[in-house]
């Protein structure tokens, strides 16, 4: 039997791991005026999926595969450094590690997981997500989908608080880009083997800049 239901658990926005406090750069992008209506929001989400989403998905998928190895820690350590090198924004590195730590706290609070308990203190979020998917019997493709799903639903849900848009439109945008998430998840899967140095590194320079600008704001709704 193939595990499926656990995927819904990890992809659920209500997963109590603190993700709701983040907008994935949308708050500052709205402030700059680059995102201002349903169309530009969809473009933002699509761009995020193809860049950050693809990278996170590839790392989650590979971590999921690694979690089934007898000793996954050395590979997870390499993946952690590779993801650092793909995240030029210190604010984004910090956010990713904070979210990773929160997910880790949740998972170790839910059950005893010998592998997770041996992870360093604040691993990047997709590594924890991928490893968790592996531990709950999910496949690398599932981990990739969960990472991609999360990379766009967080900002989409945040959008209703940040701009004048109703939740029907945000979810219509999510539904329209769903097929591209499937394609990106398949692409992410191609990197479960081979040199980790060749893994996807799709850059989003404007997201990097807005992450740093956002970190300097004294008034903000979302932490990132």
């Amino acid at each position: 039997m193939t595990a499926r239901a656990a995927l819904l658990l990890f992809a659920d926005g209500r997963l109590p791991a603190g993700g709701y406090a983040h907008s994935g750069g949308l708050e500052e992008s709205v402030r700059t005026g680059r995102v201002r209506d349903a169309q530009s929001l969809e473009s933002f989400l699509e761009g995020r999926a193809r860049t950050v989403g693809l990278v996170l998905a590839a790392f989650a998928a590979r971590s999921c595969r690694a979690a089934r190895d007898p000793d996954p820690l050395p590979e997870l350590e390499v993946l952690d450094a590779e993801l650092d090198a793909r995240t030029p924004s210190p604010a984004q590195r910090e956010t990713s590690r904070q979210l990773g730590r929160q997910l880790h706290r949740l998972l170790t609070g839910m059950a005893h997981h010998p592998l997770l308990e041996r992870l360093p203190r604040a691993p990047h979020q997709p590594l924890v997500l991928g490893a968790a998917c592996g531990l709950y019997g999910l496949r690398p493709l599932d981990a990739a989908l969960a990472a991609l799903h999360e990379s766009v639903t967080g900002p989409a849900v945040a959008a209703v608080r940040l701009m004048s848009i109703d939740p029907f439109r945000t979810h219509a945008a999510l539904a329209r880009i769903a097929p591209s998430l499937d394609r990106l998840a398949e692409r992410a899967l191609e990197h479960c083997d081979g040199s980790p140095h060749d893994m996807p590194a799709a850059a989003a320079p404007l997201l990097d800049v807005v992450a740093e600008v956002h970190a300097t704001r004294s008034e903000r709704l979302f932490a990132s």
């Binding site: 209500r14 109590p16 791991a17 603190g18 709701y20 406090a21 983040h22 907008s23 730590r101 929160q102 706290r105 949740l106 945040a158 608080r161 903000r220 709704l221 979302f222 932490a223």
Partner: peptide, 20 residues
């Protein structure tokens, strides 16, 4: 703790950030 404009969530539904 920054709560993403959701302070009630952070103390009841999703306490991970506060617990940490």
């Amino acid at each position: 703790v920054e709560t993403g404009a959701c302070p009630h969530t952070a103390i009841r539904d999703d306490i991970t950030m506060n617990l940490i």
